[in-house]
């Protein structure tokens, strides 16, 4: 069963065509890293999966169900509202700039969405939240406000916050790009651990080392389309597409 499948997804901002024709399948338990030059539409693609951007055309399937079908900026077909909400909750997202809620403590950040969206009791969610904090190595920061944390700690809290909703798919939008170099490792370690636990992950990243080591599949995007995809060792060591070669040469 594929977790996410997109067919001919396109996105235009006015006249600017950011996504042209993106077809991607994410299998259950798969870790996919999306790489590519800036302006390639990697983030837009990730955000359109999560409905943060409305696609202009194409189909999105989640768990083999047609989630959204749009043509020429009009919705042709979409899943009914209740199911839509349920499927949305199966996707967790981690942002480049963390976007933690600054007025809530770390623990409250984790508990807020389960309590308001799922209507869980504090007694139900608190053990899970504390356990998640321990998994990301921040159980001693539970009562701190986000402003007291370092960038790496913030991003780990953000990951824990997304996990508190118990999603099946995690979307990472350049999770380490805003971090100081020495803090990147701690976030990548958490992500690695998550991948080992079998989480389905879709990760836009510039960390080639991480992509090579953890990803099941690496996708190279440029100019709004997927230029090449394949196993990391194949794509990194023996790229077929000239654009991929050029990109890899420029960064390595």
């Amino acid at each position: 069963m594929s977790m996410i499948r997109t067919e001919h997804v396109s996105k235009k901002f006015g006249h600017l065509e950011v996504l042209k024709d993106v077809n991607l399948t994410v299998e259950n338990g798969e870790v996919i890293c999306i790489i590519g030059p800036s302006g390639a539409g990697k983030s837009t693609f990730l955000r359109s999966l999560n409905q943060l951007e409305m696609i202009t055309g194409g189909k999105i399937f989640i768990e083999d169900e047609l989630f959204l079908h749009r043509e020429h900026d009009r919705t042709v077909d979409s899943i009914d509202k209740d199911k839509h909400k349920a499927l949305m909750l199966e996707m967790g997202m981690v942002f480049q700039h963390f976007n933690l809620f600054p007025h809530k403590t770390v623990l409250e950040n984790l508990m807020l969405a389960p309590m308001t969206v799922k209507g869980m009791n504090q007694t139900e969610i608190e053990p899970l939240a504390r356990q998640l904090l321990e998994e990301v190595g921040l159980s001693d920061k539970a009562d701190e406000y986000p402003s007291k944390l370092s960038g790496g700690q913030k991003q780990r809290v953000a990951i824990a916050r997304a996990l508190a909703m118990q999603p099946k798919i995690m979307l990472f939008d350049e999770p380490t790009s805003a971090l100081d170099p020495e803090l990147v490792g701690e976030v990548l370690n958490v992500m690695k651990k998550l991948a080992e636990e079998g989480m389905t992950m879709l990760c836009v990243t510039h960390e080639m080392g991480f992509a090579r080591e953890v990803a099941d599949k690496v996708v190279f995007m440029a100019d709004g389309i997927i230029m090449e995809e394949g196993k990391p060792e194949e794509l990194f060591n023996n790229p077929q597409n000239p654009r991929t070669k050029q990109f890899l040469q420029s960064i390595l």
Partner: peptide, 13 residues
């Protein structure tokens, strides 16, 4: 910050 809206939406609020 817009990111706050996005984070809330991504969490299903």
């Amino acid at each position: 910050d817009k990111g706050q809206y996005e984070a809330a939406k991504a969490l299903g609020m």
